[in-house]
């Protein structure tokens, strides 16, 4: 609570974990394919939906590790 004001910083090597979560969904080469389908859904759609998990994982890791 009233701990001495240590200079807090946003800098952390862990922040780099966020980079792939931003870059991967922007590479059409990875996902612009129809096959293989999953439950009848072309890869283009189901793979981009699974990128959501990458985003959640990256932000979660950074949040947990850089907390305090």
């Amino acid at each position: 609570m009233t701990e001495p004001r240590s200079p807090r910083s946003d800098r952390s090597p862990w922040n780099w974990v966020l980079l792939p979560a931003v870059v991967i969904p922007l590479i059409p080469l990875l996902f612009n394919h129809a096959e293989p389908r999953l439950l009848g859904i072309p890869l283009f759609y189901w793979l981009q939906l699974t990128f959501i998990l990458v985003s959640v994982a990256a932000t979660l890791i950074v949040y947990r590790v850089t907390r305090r």
Binding site: D10, L18, L19, A21, V22, Q48, S55, V62
Partner: peptide
């Protein structure tokens, strides 16, 4: 039209800091 998905996927890691 599916651009809305990568758009809203990358936005959070992008703006977090």
């Amino acid at each position: 039209g599916f651009f809305a998905v990568p758009y809203t996927v990358i936005v959070y890691p992008l703006v977090m800091l």
